[in-house]
Amino acid sequence: MSERARLSGWTIILLTLALLPLYLHSARWIDFLEMTLFVAVLGQGWNILGGYGGQYSFGNALLFGTGAYIQALLQFKFGISPWIAMWFAIAGVVAVGAMVGFLSFRYGLRGSYFALITLAFAEAFLVLSRSLKSITEGGSGVQLALNQDPAQAIATFQFNFAGPFLKEYGFYYTIFTILLVTYAITWWMERSRFGAQLVAVRENEDAALALGINTFKVKLGAICLSSAITASCGVYYVQKFLFIEPGIAFGPSKSVEALFAPIIGGLGTVVGPLLGSVFIHGVGEATKMTIGQALGGRPGVDLILFGTILILVLAFLPRGLVGLVEAVWKRLSGGRDA
């Protein structure tokens, strides 16, 4: 696909995302869109390191959870403004990510070993967040006070009692903005020296080294960027739900959600995580609406579906849905525009 086709595609996608909720007017559908964009951002955080850099993390919950906890605890314990807390959250997560990256890459952990160590760190933080009650409030989690004063809505980063527009759309446009920023960064990265070197590391680390790339530094840079993006998801989550507990923060489900979207959508592409997230949430919602009733609302159906989609994509679409879309596009444009 040419750069121009890509840009027009993005214009259409972003305009749709910007305007769609205004026409939906339904709290349920706006919630659905919010969660879709949330996972799209979470997935981009994974995609930077996993898709572009080839380092598959199985523990991105470590980054999400650390961000969420810093955001929650700074407000809960010290009454710090959420707008200030978020910078500490991002910085804190980058520090944690850099530490894990430094240790893993310094000791040359690749492939399965890198996956295992990220998993181990997430598990360690899960245990710590449950047991260090004096710091984290333990297993019962942190509940933030609900602001009921409309005048304080923006100052408290809470839109539940805000004026008419913010109340309805505040969180949607928050996650939409986060998506815009993180996807713009990824778009820029893809077209930069750093991005080219990161992909080179993924494709062949020895060749990258021979061509003068400091592969350690490049991987470390990628994990820091990945951390910052994932941290923003933690911040968003806490502001939206005003609650965080160890299982949500550091349990395996966020780690898994983070890798589903980019793998299904298309690894190492800007649009992949968004496409993947829209697809799995769309399929999940469609299932609920059609056969959900017949199944009696039992839990597990959507994850059975997502797991199956994951396996099928791995088996038949090595480049994910993006690869499929590009193949179709090539067909339609008569193979002129590869």
């Binding site: 598959y56 996956a115 994850l303 994951l310 396996i311 099928l312 791995l314």
Partner: peptide, 26 residues
């Protein structure tokens, strides 16, 4: 499904785990 690649195998077994676990839940 894994085309002989270690990282893909890891992901496939993760997918299998998720499917089996949620089938049990269901």
């Amino acid at each position: 499904a894994s085309h002989g690649k270690d990282e893909i195998t890891l992901l496939v077994t993760l997918g299998v785990a998720i499917v089996i676990e949620n089938m049990a839940l269901f």
